[in-house]
């Protein structure tokens, strides 16, 4: 890390620290979800009676948010739009971490850019929703607003970087690759990028300790992932088994 500017040094250290916190926290949480037993079969029925059926129903739910759709169409529209757009934005950013860039990523750039442009809309909608309905206002805490505002700021600063205050993308990619390859180089001292990058680091550090863990947790929910076959197959409770 010798020869780095002070700013680059600070951000290199921060980046590694956040990466460690993110992956450490993620592993810790997911490990907890994975190894904690289900003492009883608590599938919410009607549920598929086969493992294959459960996998299909979970894929459908995760891909379409079908249970939320059943629950509230207005929340579904905002939530689903946000998540699809977020996925597009992730895809768009992958080119900055991959070298060489796979051709497919180049092809999807226009679509992904459209996503990035739209990102603030569902976020503003979701924010307004929390304020507008008395039930949602009651359950919303500062933490719930914090996540939405943080994501909104990340989106806006990203758009600023793209359309208002350009920065040296080659330099940024070099900086990011340097971090990934454990050989940090100087970060382009561009204010818009520094703001955008700092906000992203905050989000990543916050992720494992927050409700954002729903992104991992959704794969483990016992009411959804257990097979409805308790009469046919004896479910053994790991901590009660002799």
């Amino acid at each position: 890390m010798s020869g780095l500017s002070p700013l680059s040094l600070v951000y290199a250290v921060l980046s590694y620290a956040v990466t460690a916190v993110f992956f450490g926290g993620l592993l810790h949480k997911l490990w907890g979800y994975a190894v904690t037993p289900n003492p009883l079969n608590i599938a919410t029925t009607p549920a598929p009676a086969t493992r294959g059926g459960v996998i299909v129903s979970n894929i459908v739910n995760i891909a379409t948010f079908s249970s939320l759709f059943k629950g509230n169409r207005w929340t579904w529209i905002g939530g689903y739009a946000f998540h699809v757009i977020l996925l597009a934005v992730f895809a768009r950013h992958l080119r900055l971490f991959l070298h060489p860039v796979p051709p497919l990523l180049v092809l999807i750039q226009p679509v992904a850019l459209l996503g990035a442009l739209l990102l603030p809309l569902p976020l503003i909608y979701l924010l307004a929703r929390r304020k507008a309905v008395d039930r949602y206002a009651w359950i919303s805490s500062p933490a719930d607003y914090f996540v939405l505002v943080l994501l909104l700021l990340i989106g806006l600063s990203g758009l600023g970087l793209k359309f208002v205050s350009h920065s040296d993308m080659v330099g940024i990619k070099q900086f990011l690759l340097g971090l990934v390859m454990a050989s940090p180089v100087d970060m382009p001292p561009h204010p818009a990028f520094i703001i955008h990058f700092t906000l992203v680091l905050m989000l990543a550090a916050y992720f494992p300790f927050s409700k954002l863990m729903h992104a991992g947790g959704v794969f483990f929910s016992p009411t959804r992932t257990m097979v409805d076959d308790p009469r046919e197959r004896r479910h053994v409770n790991p901590w009660a088994a002799k």
Binding site: L98, H99, Q174, L177, G178, A182, S183, V185
Partner: peptide, 17 residues
């Protein structure tokens, strides 16, 4: 993505430019 890049380009070497 991180592993892909690290594996493809090596660790502790100057990032490609």
């Amino acid at each position: 993505p991180l592993l892909y890049t690290a594996a493809g380009n090596g660790l502790f070497t100057k990032p490609p430019a």
